[in-house]
């Protein structure tokens, strides 16, 4: 499953990160490396973008990119 499929408030573990190289690199650099736990906090009005919490910081990415982040629920 992907980050975009998570239910709001669920914590999951990152399995892999995909997407365009530069963006993927930036996501990894922000600490979204495989093994990190991430929570889907909420979604903006119209269902996009999404708000995530990982490593104590709050980030927002769009649904399309969230779909390239594969996660598993432990």
């Amino acid at each position: 499953m992907t980050l975009a499929d998570l239910e709001i408030g669920t914590e999951a573990r990152i399995e892999s990160v995909g997407g365009a190289r530069a963006f993927r690199r930036r996501l990894l650099e922000l600490g979204l490396v495989p093994g990190t736990s991430v929570t889907l906090v909420r979604q903006a009005p119209f269902g996009d973008p999404l708000e995530l919490r990982a490593r104590g910081s709050v980030l927002s990415i769009r649904r399309a990119e969230a779909e390239t982040v594969h996660v598993s629920i432990p």
């Binding site: 365009a20 930036r26 709050v58 927002s60 990415i61 769009r62 399309a64």
Partner: peptide
């Protein structure tokens, strides 16, 4: 097109 990547600071 550059994907959105925002930090929502405290």
């Amino acid at each position: 097109s550059v994907p959105l990547l925002l930090e929502l600071p405290a």
